[in-house]
Design a protein around this nucleic acid. Structure first.
Lengths: 251, 251
DNA sequence: CGTGACGTTGATATGATTCAACTTGAGTGG
DNA sequence: CCACTCAAGTTGAATCATATCAACGTCACG
């Protein structure tokens, strides 16, 4: 039915698991043992093609760590409209956490080809409450909290910001997240989102996203060429959208 | 500094603790022992006056169960605008849950006079993992999940619905929540929200909320008189906003 | 009797949507 | 290699939904 592929390859994916490790390590400094655990998990990689859902038939999301590619959580409304709740980037986890959360149950869909790792085993190992994995558990809790923070930011964008501010705020947030995963420099990032995806996330029409992006380019706030975004005037963008990087404090 | 009052009265508040118990019991049928535990907590009641925040000086929210009155979680933006993330009704809990969540950290403010119960002890008791309190823990987890579902619904309202649909959807959701707490009939509820609060929740201007409510009254969809809302045409409202009551399944 | 919070209403402005035409680039098959 | 198609993006014109500004009404309260 699905064209999902399950490959059992040795983790030649040296760069692939880096993003996940970097994010987790940023959230709470991991021990060597914990790093090794995460690396060992990367033996079983899966590929989900663009447009495919993350859910197995059984409804609940399989726990996964994303190694490369972008996905989103979304809901399709009765009239066919789509609302995107948030994006999943390399290094992000899905369906980890002991209890099933509605956000995880919202259908998760790959926006590009996504390489990921089955994390069922990770979830089970962490559920054992072994103190040697304390930092890893803490890191995942931090990541989960940050996810909720992003959802609140999303509400603010939708409720109280103009089209330009919404875009600026989202782009800066994505840049920060990629940077934390070690996947982009300060002003340049790969942005594989269609304008339609941006529109469905930001509660705007596709056409207006196009116009607003054009305007941002015209005013030399950003530049875009074949899927790459350059942030030209970060300080202006920040002030235009009241952006405040609020990654949870390490502890 | 604060005019918060700490009263130690015997739980003559027989009706007061009912809402909390009803909600929890809906989420997972409680044992007699668990019901007694919750009732015993109601000895120490607090009052928070309209406009006051729930946070103690120490930043983190004190765990509480709301017995009566309405509150909201909100963020004030740099330009003074307010975005409300959600409402807290009688029977709802705040800051329960073992880990501090960003939603709980968002400033929680009383919209009316709120009577509540300090639940620090409850949280500590539940952290002991005593199997006799399993159902109570499950009930709180369900409540927490429902809260996240409401937040996702809120995103959909803000992102993809018209002013009328936003209002209809929110009102139906509030009605369902109050009904679950045993606090309103099918078509009539106490609604102590100002139009400004509705506007700040729904991402609309105060003026437009007023207009849209007037329109709903004119078209005999709802009626309002001094803080009481009557739902006149529920089926129309439901279809107008694609409302789907999605309270988490009991298990 | 004033004062302030809340709500209503009209006139006008504006940001965003819709519809539709057109461009560009990548992929496909003859 | 060319013609075709399709997805993604761009642009203009008309329209619509909502915001803004401002005046006014009502009620509770000191």
């Amino acid at each position: 039915m699905t064209s999902r592929t399950l490959t059992a390859r040795r983790s030649l994916a040296v760069p692939a698991d880096t993003a996940a490790l970097r994010i987790l390590n940023t959230a709470a400094r991991l021990s060597d043992e914990e790093r090794a655990l995460v690396r060992r998990l990367c033996i079983f990689q899966e590929v989900i093609n663009a447009g495919e859902a993350f859910t197995s038939e059984g409804r609940t999301v399989t726990p996964r760590l994303i190694l490369s590619g972008w996905a989103c959580r979304q809901r399709i409304l009765a009239d066919g409209q789509r609302q995107i709740f948030g994006f999943l980037l390399p290094g992000d986890g899905v369906g980890l956490g002991t209890d099933a959360r509605p956000l995880d149950e919202a259908s998760t869909v790959a926006l590009t080809r996504v390489e990921c790792v089955d994390a069922v085993m990770l979830r089970e190992i962490l559920a054992l409450q072994d103190p040697r994995h304390d930092r890893l558990r803490r890191a995942l809790a931090t990541a989960r909290r940050y996810e909720e923070t992003c959802l609140l930011n999303h509400v603010v964008r939708l409720g109280r910001q103009s089209a330009l501010a919404r875009l600026a705020h989202l782009l800066l947030e994505l840049r920060d997240r990629l940077q934390r995963a070690g996947l982009c420099s300060i002003d340049r990032m790969h942005l594989p989102l269609t304008q339609e995806a941006l529109a469905d996330a930001l509660g705007l029409s596709l056409v207006h996203v196009s116009r607003t992006l054009s305007q941002m380019k015209r005013n030399r706030l950003i530049a875009m060429q074949n899927g790459w975004l350059t942030i030209l005037d970060e300080s202006y963008l920040r002030s235009a959208c009241d952006y405040d990087a609020d990654y949870p404090v390490l502890h």
